[in-house]
């Protein structure tokens, strides 16, 4: 019995399903992330992450400008 056609069908279907589910899951993750309740004053608070500046540029910036307190950290 030639198993290749069956194997092909199983792998093909599972791959297509996985690709769709992976994209949908990622979209669901992003939607859930956007919907999560924000802490009070979060809008006014600075963003936690600031891009790294090389030492030469950072020397001009305030010492603690690299980051500000996040809502959840550890």
């Amino acid at each position: 019995m030639d198993v290749v056609p069956y194997l092909s069908a199983v792998i093909l279907i599972s791959t297509i399903a996985t690709i769709f589910l992976a994209v949908l899951s990622y979209a669901a993750f992003k939607i859930r992330d956007k919907r999560k309740p924000k802490a009070k004053g979060a809008a006014a608070a600075p963003v936690y992450f600031h891009r790294y500046k090389p030492a030469a540029q950072a020397a001009d910036a305030p010492e603690d400008a690299a980051a500000t307190p996040s809502e959840d950290g550890a």
């Binding site: 936690y48 980051a67 307190p69 996040s70 809502e71 959840d72 950290g73 550890a74």
Partner: peptide, 8 residues
């Protein structure tokens, strides 16, 4: 005070 894992 809360400041993130790195600071902790």
């Amino acid at each position: 005070p809360n400041g993130g894992k790195a600071r902790a």
